[in-house]
Simulated scan of single mutants.
Amino acid sequence: MVEVAKFVEYLSLERGLSLNTVSAYKRDILQFFSFLEKNKRSLSSVDLKFLSNYLITLKENDFSSSTILRKTASIKTFFKFLINEGIISLNPASFLKPSRKKTKLPSFLNYDEIKTLIETPDTTNLLGLRDRALLELLYGTGIRVSEVINIKLEAINLDVGYIKVLGKRDKERIIPLGRVAVEYIKMYLEKRKSFFLKGKEENNFLFLFLNWRGIPLTRQAIWKIIKKYGLISGIRKKLFPHILRHSFATHLLRNKADLRVIQELLGHSDIVTTQIYTHLEHNTLKEFHKKYHPRG
């Protein structure tokens, strides 16, 4: 398959794509070539109908909408490359349009569920106090878990009530801390002073959240913490760290917060990303109307 080899070379050398991205393109095109061979078709005989049938076959084989979208993009890029190289004269993929990916609305917890979850940890011991502070911080600021695990003590000002986080693409933002979050972070930090013995790695103590061995928490550890308290509290929804971020944004929006402010707090570079929460709110209103209105 000379065409595939040339295409891979083009992606790597001319477009400078990462190894993972190039590998994904290559897999998609090789899968398409398998479909060609199975149907005994040559590359030059491919038309729009054949490509559309290929996408239908992918759907029938239970490929997700997002995967089909990616494979479509790979095919379109491949055929454009073939045109530019003079390998084919007509581009059958130029009008290829897969079914649009359905927007998946984010899951969130209502206020009672949030209150139950956050108040579940036993704050009479250090780890329970740490977990309460962690949950208060996640819900109170809406920051990402990847941001939480990298928070250092120098980034927190508990007297003024704010925290500095480094988000995607190393973009720094300052987020206000609520009174309750400040209270529990203070109690946690005070108690952890007397818990850890000397001789531990001093650099670790620069981080806010540590495990019982004095090592910074990982993403997996935070996921387990949230899942643990979800089970204890009896919340039936599927819990994951990002659900606190979704809940933070949804509850702000319900309390009439400005969308631009929510965008800034979440660290979204594009407000379109933040607007998903307006769709979520509209969806909730529709359900409410359907349930309670006599002609809903």
Rank of each mutant, 00 (worst) to 15 (best):
K59P: 00
G178V: 10
Q31S: 11
D112R: 12
A181S: 14
R15H: 07
R70W: 01
S45A: 13
G140F: 03
N203Y: 11
D112L: 11
L96N: 08
L13P: 00
W212E: 15
D28S: 13
S44E: 15
H268G: 11
S23F: 11
I225C: 09
E119V: 02
F81E: 05
K76W: 04
K237E: 07
I276K: 02
N110E: 13
K227R: 13
I118P: 01
P294E: 02
F288I: 15
D122M: 11
G296V: 06
I235L: 14
L127V: 13
H289D: 10
S64I: 04
E172I: 15
E147C: 05
K193R: 14
N125K: 12
S52C: 03
P121Q: 09
L158N: 06
S12L: 02
N39Y: 09
N211C: 04
L206H: 10
I226Q: 08
G128M: 09
L280V: 15
H251N: 07
D131W: 11
I235P: 05
K71H: 08
S194Q: 10
K49I: 14
L134C: 01
E14P: 07
S89H: 08
I262G: 01
H282P: 00
S269M: 00
R260Y: 12
D62V: 03
F35H: 07
Y229W: 11
N110F: 12
K59D: 12
I271V: 15
K191A: 14
G234E: 12
V2R: 12
I243S: 00
G140M: 00
K198V: 12
V160I: 14
A5W: 00
K191T: 12
K286G: 07
G128D: 05
K193C: 03
Y184T: 09
L189W: 05
I232F: 07
A155M: 14
A93I: 04
L58N: 06
T250M: 14
Y111T: 13
G142M: 02
K224F: 10
R245K: 09
E201K: 15
F95P: 00
F33G: 00
K26W: 05
L58C: 11
L117C: 05
R15L: 15
K200M: 01
I75R: 02
K164S: 01
A133G: 03
K186W: 04
F7I: 06
A93Y: 09
F288K: 04
I163F: 04
G128Y: 08
L266W: 06
I226S: 04
G214F: 01
R41D: 01
S64W: 03
L43D: 06
K186F: 03
